[in-house]
Design a protein around this nucleic acid. Structure first.
Length: 467
RNA sequence: GACCCCUUCGUCUAGCGGUCAGGACACGACCCUUUCACGGUUGAGACACGGGUUCGAUUCCCGUAGGGGUCGCCA
């Protein structure tokens, strides 16, 4: 049997970070088993669903490189099929019309709560004849759910979950306007799409029991369920807007790499022994449900950042430059041209060990693109004392004489100078840094000079010496 | 309120009856060092509580406490 998983977001906002993890696990499991990963947009709530949200979700999934198979299925386009299934159940006596008013339902819930009973519909229209129907009321269609016994969800993560059928009421399948509810739509779509494994958030666990009743009523095979524990904020409450960024796209904007995001999300609730940095290839090879924990995990920005540092360090220079260029361009107020991109790429080896995010990378690289004369920041200005400027002038003269303009040769010159002057390298390098970059923090000065090239470097030093 | 679930360092977790309870992030110290980082070494840091079962419980069972989820003609 080929495994078929799916991710089924409702397009009412950005891709939630929890949704991103759900999508990742579905994708991984499909890849691990050689199965298929499908995408379904649950847009049956026409009020809240928007095209922008759909675009944002697809965009985030693309960013995370979680590619799905085929075209996304739009649930709203399948309402006729959903209604057809409801009619079938009606014809088979698996469902019935209910003429309760909203007021009746509310009252039912309130009295149930007051008496400490489970809040559920009491099934008053279960066996009543249609002739008793009040005039002018459009009925809903409800499932004739089993009232005795129990429904057990054999969950791959949570284990066997047993729920007494008495706890579950006759859920609405078709609204009074004839449109399907989520419960019906999910089951019909999962069945029609051939979904074999339903992997989703823990918040759907009790829904699984209800959905099983629909599968059983239709005599359809029940898929394997795997309910993932939710992601919580640092305070232990369900992750929400007040915790800061909850949308996947926000992390892209903060300069996180998709592979870092995947690794972090994977480890949040899943483990493979002591392994921490797990490549996507390894994840595909190792992923299975038995590695998933049962308790909710807190989102930890620091750990994500540490992982991002690792992935930046091993990433390809040209790719990093390409990803950093727009961020840098925004800071500079202009778009980087080919030459700029080439400079950024060349600078990458000495930059990528010092940035935790691409945003930080852009900040750190900015000085390379500031035109002469260098405008030193406050700290750099302090370093550029008259004595320092004198030393820079001397040094510039010596550096002009090097045959090969590369980092080791330049370092040799400066070291020699420092030794003769009886100074530590730091005493000499720091003014150089200030003169070249206008900052007191930068990549190693010899690398900086090598990147700038002979002409630009000497010009910057001469500027500083002359001031 | 009813039902279901969860509980190992601050955080993510390993552990699947006998371990000095391991790793990672964060934190402290030291080393490396031209700045900032990286890196290396090292330190502190946990089995929620109470009963059982057992020769022996972090591990199995039952309670308690705490936390979470679900109870819509939302998804």
């Amino acid at each position: 049997m080929t495994v078929v998983t799916r991710f089924a977001p409702s397009p009412t906002g950005f891709l939630h970070i929890g949704g991103a993890r759900t999508a990742l696990f579905n994708w991984l499991y499909a890849r691990h088993t050689g199965g298929k990963f499908l995408l379904r947009i649950e847009d049956t709530d026409r009020e809240r669903s928007t095209d922008e949200a759909i675009a944002a979700i697809l965009d985030s999934l693309n960013w995370l490189e979680l590619e799905w198979e085929g075209e996304p299925v739009y649930q709203a386009q399948r309402v006729e099929r959903h209604a057809e299934v409801a009619r079938t159940m009606l014809a088979q006596g698996k469902a019935y019309h209910c003429y309760c008013s909203p007021e009746e339902l509310t009252e039912m819930r309130e009295s149930a709560r007051a008496e400490g009973r489970p809040m559920r519909y009491d099934g008053r229209w279960r066996d009543r004849d249609r002739s008793e129907a009040p005039a002018g009321i459009k009925p809903v269609v409800r499932l004739r759910a089993p009232q005795e016994g129990e429904t057990v969800i054999r969950d791959k993560v949570q284990g066997d979950i047993t729920i007494a059928n008495a706890q579950l009421d006759d859920m609405v399948l078709l609204r009074s306007d004839g449109t399907p509810t989520y419960m019906l739509a999910v089951v019909v779509d999962d069945h029609d799409m051939g979904v074999t494994h339903v992997v989703r958030g823990d918040d759907h666990l009790t829904n699984a029991a209800r959905q099983m009743q629909i599968f059983q009523a239709m005599d359809w095979p029940v898929p394997v369920f795997a309910h993932l524990p939710l992601i919580h904020g640092p305070d232990g409450a369900k992750l929400s807007k007040r915790h800061g960024a909850v949308g996947a796209e926000a992390y892209r904007e903060m300069g996180f790499l998709p592979e870092a995001m995947r690794n972090y999300l994977l480890r949040l609730g899943w483990a493979h022994g002591d392994d921490e940095t797990i490549s996507t290839e390894q994840a595909v090879a190792w992923f299975d449900f038995d590695g998933i924990g049962r308790s909710p995990a807190r989102f930890d920005m620091a750990k994500l950042t540490a992982l991002n540092l690792h992935y930046i360090k091993i990433a390809d220079d040209a790719r990093l430059a390409r990803l950093t260029a727009p961020l840098l361009g925004a800071r500079l107020g202009r778009t980087l041209d080919e030459g700029g991109l080439a400079l950024l790429t060349a600078a990458m080896p000495s930059m990528k060990e010092r940035a935790k995010t691409l945003v930080e990378m852009a900040e750190n690289a900015e000085f390379y693109f500031h035109p002469r004369p260098v405008a030193p920041d406050e700290k750099a200005a302090k370093v550029l004392t008259p004595e320092a400027r004198g030393a820079i002038a001397e040094l510039a003269g010596e550096l002009a004489g090097v045959a090969e303009w590369n980092a080791p040769a330049l370092e040799a010159v400066v070291r020699g100078h420092a030794e003769r002057a009886g100074l530590g390298l730091g005493k000499v390098a720091q003014p150089l840094r200030a003169a070249l970059t206008g900052r007191t923090v930068s990549p190693p000065v010899f690398d900086v000079m090598a990147i700038f090239g002979r002409e630009e470097s000497l010009a910057r030093l001469t500027d500083a010496a002359a001031a």
